[in-house]
């Protein structure tokens, strides 16, 4: 299937089986291994990417569903050597331990801030309810997202 979509800000024109799992396409065909496979059934959030501004599981998506859309993976956040506000906050707030859940968490947080730049604690909790982290009690992660929201809004104003 011939597909046209935007990946991390760049136009893509590819020919790939439409039913190919998006996670495999990203990791194996595009060699972007930042997106992880944690459970393959949409329960852990490690494979989260952003499609048309919404956080989705790439393990539950096929490449055909990208058509005409815009896909962002973790690799697409850093721009010109500058980390995204969320990435900076995760580093600052010690929210990274083993790191395996990190890219999924960051993408979910990014999607949250797209639609809700001023999330409450409750909204943050709910937004990451589908992203599992076994190395922490989610405290540092929630604080990072709050911090990132604060800093992003500060920059804008």
């Amino acid at each position: 299937m011939k597909l046209n979509f935007i990946l991390n800000g760049e136009n893509m024109n590819i020919d790939v089986p439409g039913e190919r799992r998006l996670l495999d396409f990203i990791r194996e065909d595009l060699h972007l291994t930042g997106t992880k496979e944690g459970c393959s059934v949409g329960e852990c959030g490690a494979c989260t990417v952003i499609l048309n501004n919404k956080a989705i599981h790439s393990c539950m998506t096929v490449v055909g569903q990208l058509e005409g859309g815009e896909l962002i993976t973790i690799e697409g956040l850093e721009k010109n050597g500058e980390l995204d506000a969320i990435q900076k906050s995760f580093i600052k707030k010690s929210a990274i331990q083993c790191g395996f859940c990190t890219s999924g968490m960051v993408m979910t947080a990014k999607a949250l801030l797209f639609s809700n730049p001023h999330p409450t604690d409750e909204e943050i909790k709910k937004a990451i309810s589908g992203n599992l982290c076994r190395c922490s009690g989610y405290k540092e992660i929630k604080e990072s997202i709050k911090d990132a929201a604060y800093n992003s809004n500060k920059e804008e104003s």
Binding site: V41, G42, T61, G64
Partner: peptide
């Protein structure tokens, strides 16, 4: 959306001859 189908394909591994995608 695929959220049920993809799980079911993985569990049961059926031989699918055609996917008809409705997203457009």
């Amino acid at each position: 959306g695929g959220t049920d189908l993809m799980v079911s394909i993985r569990e049961k591994k059926p031989q699918i001859d055609t996917y008809l995608s409705l997203c457009n």
